[in-house]
């Protein structure tokens, strides 16, 4: 909703004329639903900042949130939403901080006295505040989505450690359900670890994976193939009987990929191969 020039001017006027009163009332109404979870001082500081920005934006001719004139106001609202989302407030609690301006405006303008002209102004301002509130709502939702994405990334990092087991051997113990996205991350990390450590052997341990479906099996297969292309060999360990059964039932061909019952068996197998490699290299010299 766009204000017209006169409505904007009058809003600017009342904001500077009754600055203190509006600020006080705005802070009060905004703080009420927060129930002390955010200190009154902090919430008051935020509304005061908004009021200041609103005033200067109006002076610069911002009659709506759109365009260059509204940019600073948008930035401030986004920041408010982000802070609140981080602190765990709900979307309505956040938007109310903006909507509270309506009460403050109403009580401090002639609209409270029932003057027709003032009421018309108030309706226009009110729509303008609604726009600010809705923007806050959307910014809040975006901020929450960002937080969720970040957390799931952090979780992903925590849940897929690639460890060096021996000189020339890296291992990735998989724990929990493997979805396609996670399987992809695991695959990339394991392959990168091969390059970084110069290890020709990798062990993928799936003891902690509750079930294996076609997709997961394919990801494991692809990882093994990619590692081979890079010149490294993968061993899959920790295949439980039920999983072995599923693999056969699904008709997935593990082909010539070495599999071992436990991580220990896999490590023993690899160390044997490593010492065979070393013997062969020695004979050459």
């Amino acid at each position: 909703m766009t204000l017209n020039a006169e409505q904007g001017e009058r809003l600017s006027e009342i904001l500077s004329l009754r600055s203190d009163k509006i600020a006080k009332r705005w802070a009060e109404v905004a703080a009420a639903p927060l129930k002390g979870r955010l200190s009154a001082a902090e919430s008051g500081r935020q509304t005061a900042e908004l009021q200041q920005q609103l005033q200067s934006s109006l002076k610069n001719g911002a009659l709506s949130l759109d365009g260059a004139a509204g940019a600073e106001l948008r930035a401030l609202l986004t920041e408010l939403s982000r802070d609140r989302a981080r602190q765990g407030f709900t979307a309505s609690e956040t938007a109310t901080s903006v909507f509270a301006l309506k009460t403050a405006l109403y009580e401090n303008s002639d609209a409270a006295k029932g003057k027709a002209e003032a009421l018309r102004d108030y309706v226009a301002w009110s729509e303008f505040v609604d726009e600010l509130g809705l923007f806050t709502f959307e910014a809040f939702a975006r901020a929450r989505e960002q937080i969720i994405t970040q957390q799931s990334e952090q979780l992903m990092e925590l849940s897929t450690p690639v460890v060096k087991l021996w000189e020339g051997v890296v291992a990735v113990p998989l724990v929990g359900t493997l979805d396609s996205a996670r399987a992809q991350v695991v695959m990339e990390r394991l392959l990168q670890a091969l390059v970084d450590t110069g290890s020709p052997y990798a062990i993928i341990d799936i003891t902690g994976v509750p079930s294996v479906d076609t997709q997961v099996a394919h990801h494991v297969l692809k990882t093994v193939m990619a590692a081979r292309l890079m010149g490294a060999e993968c061993i899959v360990s920790g295949i439980r009987p039920q999983i072995a059964q599923t693999i056969v039932t699904l008709g997935i061909d593990f082909g010539d990929i070495p599999t071992k019952a436990s991580l220990a068996d896999a490590l023993r197998h690899v160390i044997k191969r490593l010492s065979a490699d070393a013997r062969a290299a020695k004979r050459e010299q």
């Binding site: 695959m187 392959l191 091969l194 692809k222 990619a226 292309l229 890079m230």
Partner: peptide, 9 residues
């Protein structure tokens, strides 16, 4: 490179 190997597969 790992990314190349994954792509080739």
């Amino acid at each position: 490179r790992p990314a190349v190997a994954i792509t080739l597969v």
